[in-house]
Design a protein around this nucleic acid. Structure first.
Lengths: 232, 232
DNA sequence: ATCTGCCAGATTGCATGCAACAACGCCCGA
DNA sequence: TCGGGCGTTGTTGCATGCAATCTGGCAGAT
C-alpha cells in the first residue's frame, strides 16, 4: 500500500490519510501519552494540513477505539487501566485464534509471503536489538494479514477494531528477551501453519501466542522496584 | 420550515448525530437500496444540515462497514453478495456466542431488564403481525445489550462493527412465521440465561440462534421480493 | 473565608467557498 | 463505422470563517 517509504516526506497520500497515519504512528510510538488531550489546531499545524482532515482522522481513531471524543470537549488518547488490558487480552485470546482458523484456508500465496517477510523483518530487529517500538508496527501488520487474508471485509473491519487498541499498550517495550524470542518463534510457526493452510494449527499457535503475550506483559511492570509481584 | 419530519422532532442531538441516525435508519429501513450511490449534497438537504456532518456520518458508517467509500468517487451502500451473507453468518456463529458468554456474567440488573423489555416488545410486534422492519431495530438493540453489557468498551466497538452490517440484510423480511416464532423463543431463553448470569447457557442459545437465523434466511433468495409489508 | 454567579478565553462543531479529481460524452481521425 | 484523445460537468476533498459550547478564574455576597 504505502509506497516506498522514502526518506523525503513527499506524501502522495491525501491529507486525510496523512493525518490518520501520522496520528496513529505517534500514538503507537508513544509520543502521545495516554490521557493526553489532542488539540485539532496544533495537530493540524504539526502535520501540515488543515483542521478538517485532522478531525476526520480523530473520528476514525475514535471509531477504532484509540481515542475518546467528548462532545465539545475534544479528543484524548484512551487510557487503559490494568483491568482494560486484562480484558483486552481475554478477548483476543478468544477471538483472534478463531479468526486465524477462518482466515488461513482462504489465504493467497501473496498473503503467506507477506507473513514470512514480516516475520523475518521482526526477527532481524530483535537480533539487532533495535528499537522495539518499530516492532509494534510490524506486529500489527502481521496480525492484520490474518485478518484481511480472510477475504472477508466485515471480518477485517470488526477485528481491526478489536486488535488496534493493543497498539496503545506498546506491548514489546515490556518484553524481556526470552518472551520476545518466544513471540518471534510463534510468528514463524504461524507462517508455517499458514503456508500449510492448516487452520486448526494456526488457531492453536495463535492462542498460545496471545496467552503468552498476556503473561509477558501483565506481571512485571517495574522490575527494579517490584518485590511483591513475582512469578507465582 | 426546515423540518418536515414531524412536530415531535425534538432534536437536542447535534447535527452530526442527526445525520448519522437518519442515514442509519434509512439504510436499515431499506429506503436506500444496496449499491445505491449517496450524494453528500442531496443528503444534506434532505436531512437539513450541511455537508460536513453528512460527511462525518458517512465516514462513521464506512468504519462500521455499512457503506463503501471510494476516494473522489463517493459513497454507496454496501452490497452483499450471497457469499457475503454466508460469511457473515459464519462469523457471527463463531464470535457472538463467545461474546455472550463473556458478557453475561458481567451484566447489571438494568441490562437484564432491558433485554427482557426488548424481547417482550419484539414478541408483541410478532403477535400483532406488524411491520417486521421495526423488528430489525429492536433486534439490533437486543444484541447490542449483550455486547455493551460486557462493560468492555473495546469488545463493544469490535462487535458492533461485526453485527451492524446485518442491518443491511433486513433479515426478518424473509422469515417465515415459524422461524420468526423460534427466533423470539431464543430471545426469551437468552433473557433467562442472562438473568441467571449463566454464560455457557447464553453461549449455547446464542449459537443456536445464529445458526437458526442462517438457515431461515439463506434458502430463499427472492430478488423480486419488495417492501409492501402485508399488515392490514 | 467559602461559595456562588458571571465573564473571558479557548476550543470544538458547523457552514460554506474553492480547487482537484473522476466519470461521461463528444469530436476527430483512421 | 469504430477507436482514441480531449473538454465538460458534476462531485468529492480540503481550507477557512463564524457561532455555540465548555473550562477556568475572578469578583462579590453570605
Amino acid at each position: 500500500m504505502t509506497s516506498p517509504t522514502g526518506p523525503a516526506d513527499t506524501t502522495p497520500a491525501d491529507a486525510s490519510e496523512r493525518a490518520y497515519t501520522a496520528l496513529l504512528s505517534r500514538i503507537s510510538a508513544g509520543e502521545i501519552s495516554a490521557g493526553e488531550r489532542l488539540f485539532e489546531q496544533s495537530l493540524a499545524e504539526a502535520i501540515g494540513v488543515s483542521r478538517t482532515p485532522v478531525r476526520d482522522a480523530l473520528k476514525r481513531l475514535a471509531a477504532e477505539g484509540l481515542v475518546d471524543i467528548h462532545p465539545h470537549r475534544g479528543a484524548q488518547v484512551v487510557s487503559f487501566t490494568p483491568e482494560d488490558v486484562t480484558a483486552l487480552y481475554a478477548m483476543r485470546a478468544e477471538f483472534e485464534p478463531v479468526a486465524a482458523r477462518l482466515a488461513v484456508p482462504e489465504m493467497t500465496d501473496t498473503d503467506v509471503a507477506r507473513l514470512a517477510e514480516l516475520s523475518a523483518r521482526m526477527e532481524r530487529i530483535v537480533e539487532e536489538g533495535a528499537d522495539p517500538g518499530g516492532l509494534t508496527t510490524l506486529n500489527n501488520e502481521f496480525h492484520a494479514v490474518f485478518v484481511e487474508g480472510s477475504g472477508n471485509r466485515h471480518l477485517a473491519i470488526a477485528l481491526q477494531a478489536l486488535f488496534r487498541p493493543a497498539v496503545v499498550t506498546r506491548t514489546f517495550r515490556q518484553y524481556d528477551p526470552r518472551a520476545l524470542q518466544r513471540s518471534m518463534q510463534h510468528h514463524a510457526e504461524l507462517v508455517e501453519a499458514a503456508a500449510a493452510r492448516d487452520g486448526e494449527w494456526a488457531e492453536a499457535v495463535m492462542r498460545a501466542h496471545i496467552l503468552s503475550a498476556r503473561h509477558a506483559t501483565s506481571p512485571h511492570r517495574d522490575p527494579t522496584e517490584d518485590a511483591t509481584v513475582r512469578h507465582a
